[in-house]
Write a protein that binds this DNA or RNA. Structure first.
Lengths: 157, 157
DNA sequence: CACAACTTAGTTGTGCACAACTAGATTACA
DNA sequence: TGTAATCTAGTTGTGCACAACTAAGTTGTG
């Protein structure tokens, strides 16, 4: 009942492609977060920004961008929404008027308590032991690095 | 130089989270596809639809949706763009006027030749041998299934 | 048969991602 | 010192994803 060999890495079959698996897995995880984050009124990317700020408050937009690999085109409106929700403040730095410092409000800091309840759910949902989890995290990092390196050196043929 | 143990699966640290790794990897791969697909004038989701149609022509929107896990809210406008690009035709089925059949045009079928050149690039970019590739694909499928099952059974606590 | 329940696509509105661009501040250097 | 190059955020426009809804066709049941 095995399907015919259609040519290893060169196949155009949907199910053969790791990329599609990755894309599906990523959307599934985001979808789980949507449900888990609903009580906190956060989207997944907003949650990532909050994670970065809980880890270290008072970051510039640029610093958040390099932590999350997001540019200002994504971050600026997202941060505006977080500010409107009362979770952060945005203030131009006086010593360099180009940059904007993002600071947690009291409410933003307090939200962390609610967020603590999320990782256990995610851990349970993924159904992986610590060894597998670590191995997969490493594999993802490795994959990201390889793919980015290839893309940066890629010249249209 | 190892950071303090902050509590296994329950950590709120950005770098600890497999989810973030997954999210980053998925974006990196999409970004590579953006470069590779530029000569074909396709986005990655459009490419996925074309893959599905090359694999089996004449599918209903509903069938494409279940193959790609996308709903009509995403597919309808995407298919409209593919039609406008001359790659597919959309026609109401006469025996069931609710459903729309998607059919490749000659041009859409011909595009496959160009698409054949893409998987080798992706394979090279990922830098994985066949064993690792297969293992990872399986891990992704497993992860998607677990996470979706958890999400479907999840009731806000 | 009538009509309620369901099915299939499509539409609307929100929020990412990202490319391309702009505005304004800072730095470097001829 | 003046000005070109650079840097930081922000804006605009396109295209997903997805929730919530609508329209129209089909099916099931009393």
């Amino acid at each position: 009942m095995t399907s015919p060999d259609t040519g290893e890495t060169g196949s155009l079959l949907l199910d053969d492609q790791l990329c599609f698996g990755l894309y599906s897995a990523s959307r599934a995880v985001t979808s789980l977060y949507r449900a888990l984050l609903e009580p906190l009124d956060l989207t997944y990317p907003q949650y990532l920004v909050m994670l970065a700020l809980w880890q270290q408050d008072e970051q510039q937009v640029k610093e958040l961008g390099s932590a999350l690999n997001l540019d200002s085109g994504t971050l600026s409106p997202l941060l505006k929404r977080l500010e409107k929700a009362g979770l952060i403040k945005r203030e131009r730095q006086s010593d360099d008027e180009r940059s904007v410092r993002i600071r947690l409000t009291e409410e933003g800091t307090a939200l962390r308590a609610k967020a603590e309840r999320i990782p256990p759910h995610v851990g349970a949902a993924m159904n992986l032991n610590n060894t597998e989890l670590g191995r997969m995290r490493a594999a993802m990092d490795q994959l990201t690095a390889s793919v980015n390196a290839y893309r940066e050196s890629y010249r249209p043929s």
